[in-house]
Design a protein around this nucleic acid. Structure first.
Lengths: 148, 148
DNA sequence: ATAATTAGGTAGGCTACCTAATTATATGGA
DNA sequence: TCCATATAATTAGGTAGCCTACCTAATTAT
């Protein structure tokens, strides 16, 4: 039996390779899907629509990266940019009807996919996994900061 | 409290973002480090050195991708290509002394890093995590195959 | 007024992959 | 023995998803 740290390294590496599979639908790329979900989530039940900066924070990518994805989604007619009236530097990102429809479908499919995973793992294990992933995330985030 | 599937999705997404941080040292890229480790591991205690095809399988990337990384490592003097005598189509990849030294250091640092993680989590949780990551991996692999 | 900051955008580059086509070699069967 | 096919690796070119460096416009603080 290999040592624990090596087995952990291997399991993590293997798991992280998954990020490049799946998550494409309706001809949208993974990054676009994540953006649409963040926009819908950010706008839910709020009177003010989400901004580029908020999206950058939510998705943990830089604002130029947000801009690029929004450009694609705007050209495809899924979102619109609306100038804020109070602060004219701010762009608020709004889903079009078409964008809203597709994002609703995306949420449904994601819900389905991850519900299946929860069924597969069981509720207890799913909760442990969330907890463990958070712990590892904070461990590596701390480590990354320490090395700056 | 949000629903379990959504929390799981979020935890997984967040965790997978980690793959783009860390893992660079000695001016080597993540892909190059992974390649060096695979070469050293593949050559350990074997009379025949590892091939491009073996590396492709081990790292789960295509053989053209292996070739590219090997080119960089060869130009930097970390590895050498050696023609197989029995089958001259085959290239065997060998670490140079310089390559071996650096890979030994890489293994040490990885060992240290993941030992720290194991210490942080504790042995029991580390084992659970490995098990859970494997389960999720097999779940999504199955799903990806099903959709082909 | 002016300095500093904030929000967002543009241009260009990088990593880590990929697919398709090509070259070189090996091998099983007519 | 020759050929068709298979296999190993490489070459050529592309893509997704980020990044940095820098810019303008607008706001806030002095």
């Amino acid at each position: 039996m290999e040592e624990l740290p090596h087995r952990l390294l291997h399991a993590i590496r293997q798991f992280q390779k998954l990020s490049h599979t799946g998550h494409t639908m309706h001809g949208l790329k993974r990054s676009e899907i994540m953006m649409l979900m963040a926009i819908k989530k950010g706008n839910q039940g709020k009177e003010k629509h989400i901004t580029v900066t908020d999206l950058s924070t939510a998705l943990k990518i830089t604002s130029p990266s947000v801009t690029q994805v929004i450009n694609v989604l705007e050209n495809s007619g899924y979102v619109e940019r609306v100038n804020d009236q109070q602060d004219r530097r701010i762009m608020r990102i709004v889903l079009t009807d078409k964008g809203n429809d597709i994002t609703t479908q995306i949420f449904q499919r994601m819900e389905e996919k991850y519900s299946n995973l929860v069924d597969f793992l069981g509720e207890e294990k799913s909760n442990s996994l969330i907890e463990l992933l958070d712990e590892v995330y904070s461990f590596f985030s701390k480590e990354a900061n320490r090395k700056e």
